[in-house]
Computed example of a mutant assay.
Amino acid sequence: MNKSRLEAFSDGVIAIIITIMVLEIKTPHSAEWKDLLPLYPVALSYILSFIYVAIYWGNHHHLLHTVKKVTPSIIWANAHLLFWLSLIPFATAWMGENHFAAHTVVLYALFLMLVGGAFTILQFTIVKSNPYSPEMQVALKRQQRKALLSVTIYLVAIGTTFVNTAISGVLIFLVAVLWFIPDNNIAKALEA
């Protein structure tokens, strides 16, 4: 399989994930502004999830640019990532529909942690299958440190959910901020 086919399939799955999420926002049956107010938890969970899916799409794009040879293990590691990403719409809908109740936030954070773990597995699989320059190895190690920090924050978010879901929400958003700006080190290493 060539790299462009893997990218196209992944892009298609991610586009479907976003489409499924937006379909969970139900249109009010009246045209009054006040009728939009009850939708704020659903809209807020959608916005947060859209940001996360977009972050993973961007980082996935950068990571796949480093691939020289696609192997069966890369295909399966990529499918593993897409599996966990595909569960984000469910967790998003459940969390928004239930106004960020504790169990819904735990599941959401757990799924995000599993998506992060799957991304790390994909990265390790790609590194194992493709020889890299020392610059690229350094760039990928920096991402691994960020991934470890993210998992730690997710675990803290899960732990604080039963104390205060707002704190958990802030922690989950903090991870999104951490990854929001793509790491230019991979692009620089590719140019080297």
Rank of each mutant, 00 (worst) to 15 (best):
M1D: 06
N2W: 09
E7T: 15
F9H: 05
I14P: 07
I16F: 11
I16H: 07
T19F: 11
M21R: 04
L23V: 12
I25T: 12
K26W: 01
T27K: 10
P28H: 08
H29W: 03
H29F: 04
A31F: 15
A31S: 14
A31E: 13
A31K: 08
W33C: 06
D35T: 15
D35G: 05
L37Q: 09
L39V: 06
V42W: 00
A43D: 00
L44P: 00
S45M: 00
S45C: 00
L48I: 15
S49Q: 09
S49F: 00
I51W: 01
Y52K: 00
Y56C: 01
W57L: 02
W57K: 04
N59C: 01
H62P: 05
T66I: 10
V67L: 06
K69M: 11
S73W: 03
I75F: 10
A77D: 08
A79W: 06
A79H: 11
L81F: 13
F83N: 07
L85K: 02
S86W: 10
S86C: 12
S86R: 07
L87N: 09
P89H: 07
F90K: 00
F90N: 03
F90W: 10
G96C: 09
H99R: 14
H99K: 14
F100Q: 05
F100M: 05
H103W: 14
V105W: 09
V106L: 11
V106Q: 07
Y108D: 01
A109N: 15
A109I: 13
A109H: 09
M113H: 00
L114R: 01
L114W: 03
L114H: 08
G116R: 04
G117C: 08
G117Q: 03
A118T: 05
F119N: 03
F119A: 04
T120F: 03
T120A: 15
T120L: 07
I121V: 15
L122Q: 10
F124R: 09
F124S: 11
T125M: 07
T125I: 08
T125A: 04
T125L: 10
I126Q: 08
K128N: 12
K128Y: 10
K128H: 15
N130F: 08
P131T: 15
P131I: 10
Y132M: 15
Y132L: 06
M136S: 11
M136P: 12
V138W: 03
L140T: 08
L140Y: 10
R142P: 02
R142G: 09
R145M: 09
K146A: 06
A147E: 13
S150L: 12
V151I: 08
V151H: 06
Y154F: 15
Y154D: 01
Y154N: 04
L155I: 15
V156F: 11
V156L: 11
V156G: 01
V156P: 02
A157R: 01
I158H: 04
I158F: 07
G159V: 06
G159D: 09
T161K: 08
F162N: 05
V163G: 06
V163D: 01
T165H: 06
T165V: 15
F173E: 02
V175Y: 11
V177P: 12
W179V: 07
W179E: 05
F180G: 12
F180K: 10
I181N: 08
P182W: 13
D183M: 07
N185F: 02
N185A: 14
K188D: 13
A189M: 14
L190M: 15
L190T: 09
L190K: 10
A192W: 01
A192Q: 09
